[in-house]
Amino acid sequence: MRVVREIALHVFKESVRDRVPYTLVFFAVLLMATSYLLGQLTAGQEVKIIKDLGLAATSLIGLFIAIFIGIGLVSKEVERRSIYNLLSKPVSRRQVVLGKYLGLVLTLLVNISVMVAALYGVLAYFWFVSDPSVKAGWETPALDPALMVASGLIFVELALITALALVFSTFSSPLLSAALTFGLFIVGHFNADLKRFDQIVASRPVAYLARALYYLLPNLTLFDVKAEVVHGYHVPATAVVSAVGYAAAYIAVLVATSVFIFERRDFK
């Protein structure tokens, strides 16, 4: 476990050295400041728009971090030939994969925390400067704790996407890994349509195949409660727990697959 922790911390430090997270966090903060300006144009919908924009930016920037760092987790080590150095030490391949995955998840956690803190900062400013009559018109309080639920599920979704990127990173080039991971991200938001495929195709085998794909491919819509939270709709605890459970099981499968591939890979 100590080895895994060391590798994870190394990945985290490396991502910080890469400066990419800094740039993206800066972008998120900038976007939230922009949301303040946009709020002036929206006929009393500032808080809703700031929440929408803040959560969307958190999700999108996290997605870029997950994909663009995730795809290089293993393949970059192989390209640089530093994998030989790493594997010559008393470290198993399983520990390398697990450590790298947890390192990137830690990077995401820190980045998302900064972005959410910035979002709450902008909202706190609005709460502070707004009249009580304006506040009375808000669908939800500016500093709504439910935003933590939405951002928490964004983090869980990104942890799953990181695991996808990790699998591709163990056997494919960074470019192809990025394309495949991004493709699955899109499919993950469309796959509810696969379930209803039998309503638009006559062929039963195709409908069964679509149904099978629906269950096999990651269903990322489970983690999207942004609109519900922003409009003040209750997100049931069972929905959150089942989404987290689904992600945990899916991540376990993906990390296990990464380990399986990586342990059998010949680097000669």
């Binding site: 946009l38 959560l55 969307a56 999700s59 990322l220 942004k226 609109a227």
Partner: peptide, 8 residues
């Protein structure tokens, strides 16, 4: 999943 921000 960015439909709300698109709505804005």
């Amino acid at each position: 999943s960015y439909d709300a921000v698109m709505a804005d």
